[in-house]
Computed example of a mutant assay.
Amino acid sequence: MKYAKIYKDALLDDIIPFWEQHSIDSQHSGFFTCLNRKGDVFDTDKFTWLQGRQAWMFSVLYNEVEPKEAWLDIAKSGINFLVDHAMDKDGNFYFSTTREGEPLVQPYNIFSDCFAAMAFAQYAKATGEDTYSELARATYHNILKKQHNPKGKYEKSTGNRALKGFSLPMILSNLVLELEHILDHDEIEKTLDQCISEVTKDFLDRSTGLIRENVQLDGSPSDTFEGRLINPGHGIEAMWFLMDIGVRRNDKSLMKLAANTIITTLEYSWDKQYGGIFYFMDSEGRPPLQLEWDQKLWWVHLETLVALTKAMEHIEDERLQHWYTKVHHYSWDHFPDPKYGEWYGYLNRQGEPLLELKGGKWKGCFHVPRAMYQCWKTFERIENKQ
């Protein structure tokens, strides 16, 4: 089977046309992300991280697939909205705004900043305009300043149980490579070293082979709901970031560690009754705190396909092929909507659509097209070698 063609055709003939047709706000700039099954807008609020993600995606398409002016125009619409409406006076990014750009939710979430930085960096590459390189750099350095207290004054915990979360080192390991063309070499390597150390020494539990979502500040486990939390999709997505770093550094041991962690996580989190990957789990097998723990989510399965594909390119291990085939069939059998296009985001445990929306507060033009692009290009290299 020629997998590269499956992913390329899905990206260019289904996924991207859906967002081009339904998500562009031609009146106020930026993007609608709350789209029902058919692509009709059901809410006009704008979520900053999704604005950044879509602007980034269309910049990538322009830079890496084909320099179509229409794609650059779409990216520009998102970039304009970020610059004109999404930042406060200190360069922090609001979580959400009205359609017109009036701020609604304060900058409590550092991930809005991360995806704005990614968008500025890719758009700078597309246009050659230093203004956006500077914005990307400034946003990145602002993220680093906040990394030990990401929520700042919006932090709601008392500090009596101080934990650090996996999300930030995970995203930094990808963000720094996205900004490679605008950051100093030494700064990139220093950040990568820090991320690898935290991910592999603090968050990877060597006794189970699983990634913990939260650990104590010294990296030791916390026997609490938060400390036992396993988010399989997060752990697996981080492993393809590590795989990219391993390839960049020709570090075979890091690549093998990433591949083994992907396999271990899948063995732990695969639903043996109905198929698919659970959304949340407890590392000790206790009841998870999250009521949605048994849902099957689009991004979890897509990031797993990317991770397995990248691992198969560099690591000889028949377990990777076994798991790829399993996850591929589950994902392509359950998530795509053959009638109206794009992918469902939320399935129940049995694999039926729980919500028929194509976008909302959390799902936008990002995980589906990014995964299609990554798998297309990786399989192209694999198939060319064969």
Rank of each mutant, 00 (worst) to 15 (best):
D45F: 07
I15W: 01
E100K: 13
C375N: 08
L172H: 09
D84W: 05
R249N: 06
P287L: 11
H28D: 15
E303H: 13
D45P: 01
D130N: 14
F203K: 08
C34G: 03
H328E: 13
L12K: 04
R248H: 12
K156L: 10
M243F: 09
Y62M: 05
V199A: 05
R161M: 15
K46R: 14
A70M: 01
A121L: 14
A238K: 02
E187G: 05
D251F: 06
Q122M: 03
F120E: 00
N80P: 08
D223H: 14
L175T: 08
I188N: 07
L308P: 12
E20T: 08
D25K: 03
T33Y: 06
Q51W: 06
A119D: 04
Q54A: 03
G345K: 02
S283H: 02
E102G: 10
P67L: 08
L289S: 02
L266W: 06
F32S: 01
I245S: 05
L82I: 13
L302M: 15
Q216H: 13
D223N: 15
L320Q: 09
W293K: 02
A126K: 01
Q290H: 14
D317V: 08
E303A: 04
A75I: 06
L302E: 00
I6P: 01
P288K: 00
L289H: 02
D43R: 07
G227T: 06
G128S: 03
K38P: 01
V83H: 07
N149Q: 12
G235D: 08
Y330E: 00
W56A: 07
T48R: 12
Q374H: 07
I182M: 15
K310V: 05
M281F: 00
E155H: 06
D88C: 12
D40P: 05
W293L: 11
S269H: 02
R53S: 03
F225T: 06
D223C: 10
T309W: 06
S167M: 11
Y123E: 04
Y268H: 06
N63S: 03
E178K: 10
C375D: 00
T200P: 07
T224N: 02
E102N: 13
F335L: 07
A311G: 09
A258Q: 07
S167V: 11
Y274V: 01
V327H: 00
W19C: 04
I79C: 11
S26E: 15
W19T: 00
D184V: 11
G101S: 08
R161G: 04
K153N: 13
A117K: 09
T200V: 14
I382H: 01
L297A: 04
N250I: 12
V215Q: 04
I236M: 06
T224H: 13
A371P: 10
L12R: 10
F241Y: 04
L179Q: 01
C195L: 11
V176E: 00
Q295L: 14
D317H: 01
K46E: 12
T208H: 05
E352W: 11
S29W: 10
D333L: 12
A371F: 04
H301P: 00
V41A: 10
N348P: 06
W293F: 14
A55G: 10
R248N: 10
E352P: 11
V300Q: 01
V327W: 04
S29H: 14
K151F: 11
K272C: 13
D271G: 07
I110D: 06
